[in-house]
């Protein structure tokens, strides 16, 4: 999904979980596109408190956010 929407200048496979996606070419607009695609894919919605650059700055932070949203959606 990042490969399609994040407009990175490197291959996603070459990135570690902690690499800063914004340093590798992701723009604010691209991160919003990623957000909307994630919502579509996982059937979740990012609440306003998560609408900040930090949520989307790395693969790890995105994974953590999705995990949290899925957990709250399933009532855990």
């Amino acid at each position: 999904m990042l490969g399609t929407h994040a407009r990175l200048v490197v291959d996603v496979a070459d990135l570690s979980d902690d690499d800063d996606l914004f340093k590798f070419g992701m723009t604010s607009h691209a991160s919003v596109t990623v957000m909307l695609a994630l919502e579509d894919e996982f059937g979740v919605e990012f609440p306003e408190r998560m609408l900040r650059k930090g949520t989307f700055e790395s693969i790890g932070s995105i994974r953590q956010a999705i995990t949290e949203l899925l957990a709250s959606a399933s009532g855990d």
């Binding site: 604010s28 607009h29 991160s31 919003v32 909307l36 306003e48 609408l51 900040r52």
Partner: peptide, 12 residues
């Protein structure tokens, strides 16, 4: 989706 996108852009 437009409203959320624009709002997110502002916050980002």
């Amino acid at each position: 989706s437009f409203l959320r996108e624009q709002r997110a852009l502002a916050l980002f």
